[in-house]
C-alpha cells in the first residue's frame, strides 16, 4: 500500500517532493483511470501519492503583467467559465470530456499526462503556454513544447511540482478549433487542430497552428507559419510549399482509435481549410 501525503501549503508539498519519491495528484481524472481496479480494490499506484488539491497557493487564476496565470488546481470547468480564458482554449474545453470530468480534471493534469491526444494541448501549443515548475531549490519556466517530451513523458524533475501555467495575453482575432472523434462528447481525439491568428488591415500578421494526435507530441511547425507570415502579401504562391512542410513532418500512426491514413488526410484537409478558408 502506498503512502498518501496531504499537505496544506506549497512549501510543505515541495519539501515532501524533495524527500520522497511521490506522484502528485490533483483532480485525479487521469491517474484514477490509469490505475483503476475493480470495485473494492485500491487503485494500483506504485508511488506514494501527494494530494495537492487542497493547497490554496495552487488555486490562483489571474491576469498578471502580460500573462494569464492558471494554478495547477484550476479545474477545466473553472477555466471554461473564466472570462479571460483565450478563445482558442475555450473552444477546446467546451468539447472536452464531459461535465463531471471537467469539474475535477485540471489543465495541469492534462499537461502532465502528456498524451498526444490531450485536448488542451494544441491550444496551449498555439498560445505559446509556459509551465512554471517549482522545487525546494527554486523555480524555472519552460515553454510547453519543451516540457512535453513524448507520450507520458515530461521534463518534470522528481523533486518538482508543476505549479501553474502562464499564457501570454494576445490580441488574436481569429480562432479555429476542430476535433475529430468517434462521437460528439466524452471522446478521445483522433486528430485535432487549434489555430489562432491576428488579422490587421486584411493581412494575417500572426498565426499559430497546432495539430494533436498525429505524432508523439503536438505538431506545431514554426517554419510553415513563418513562411506564411513573410509572404502575407501573396500567400497563394507559398501555400504549396507550406503544405509540403506539414506533409513531410506529420507522421501519424495506426492505433485503437483511428488509422495513420485517416489522421494524415484529415490533418491535411484541416490545414488546407485553415490556411485557405478560415483566415480569409
Amino acid at each position: 500500500m502506498v503512502k498518501s501525503f496531504m499537505p496544506k501549503t506549497l512549501a510543505e508539498a515541495l519539501k515532501i517532493c524533495d524527500e520522497h519519491d511521490v506522484c502528485p495528484i490533483a483532480g485525479g481524472t487521469d491517474l484514477m483511470v490509469r490505475n483503476h481496479q475493480s470495485a473494492g480494490i485500491l487503485p494500483t499506484f506504485t508511488k506514494d501519492m501527494l494530494f495537492i488539491k487542497n493547497i490554496d497557493e495552487l488555486t490562483v487564476l489571474e491576469k498578471k503583467d502580460m500573462h494569464l496565470i492558471i494554478g495547477a488546481n484550476i479545474t477545466l470547468n473553472r477555466l471554461l467559465n473564466w472570462e479571460n480564458t483565450p478563445q482558442i482554449l475555450h473552444l477546446a474545453l467546451q468539447e472536452m470530456a464531459a461535465p463531471a470530468i471537467r469539474n475535477m480534471g485540471t489543465i495541469a493534469g492534462n499537461i502532465c499526462n502528456a498524451s498526444p491526444a490531450g485536448d488542451t494541448l494544441p491550444p496551449l501549443y498555439a498560445l505559446d503556454a509556459i509551465v512554471c515548475l517549482k522545487s525546494i531549490a527554486g523555480e524555472r519556466e519552460l515553454p510547453i513544447r519543451e516540457f512535453i517530451l513524448g507520450p507520458g513523458k515530461t521534463a518534470l524533475k522528481e523533486n518538482e511540482l508543476l505549479t501553474a501555467i502562464k499564457i501570454p495575453i494576445g490580441d488574436n482575432n481569429i480562432n479555429f478549433y476542430k476535433k475529430a472523434a468517434m462521437r460528439k462528447a466524452a471522446a478521445i481525439s483522433k486528430v485535432s487542430i487549434a489555430m489562432t491568428a491576428k488579422k490587421e488591415k486584411d493581412k494575417i500578421v500572426n498565426i499559430a497552428i497546432a495539430i494533436g494526435a498525429v505524432g508523439p507530441t503536438v505538431v506545431r511547425l514554426a517554419e510553415a507559419e513563418d513562411m506564411f507570415i513573410k509572404n502575407n502579401e501573396n500567400t497563394g504562391k507559398v501555400l504549396p510549399d507550406i503544405y509540403d512542410v506539414y506533409d513531410r513532418q506529420i507522421k501519424p500512426i495506426d492505433d485503437i482509435r483511428s488509422t495513420a491514413k485517416y489522421r494524415k488526410q484529415v490533418a491535411m484537409n484541416l490545414l488546407h481549410y485553415v490556411y485557405e478558408k478560415c483566415i480569409k
Binding site: 498518501s4 496531504m6 495528484i25 483532480g27 485525479g28 481524472t29 484514477m32 483511470v33 483503476h36 487503485p43 501519492m49 494530494f51 488539491k53 487542497n54 470547468n77 461535465p99 463531471a100 470530468i101 469539474n103 475535477m104
Partner: peptide
Amino acid sequence: SVLMDHELVSSCLVPVGNAA
C-alpha cells in the same frame, strides 16, 4: 455520479482524500 460542493463528479475517480 454524486455532487461535490454542488458540482457533478464521478465518484469512481475521486480518491477519498480529495473529498476531505
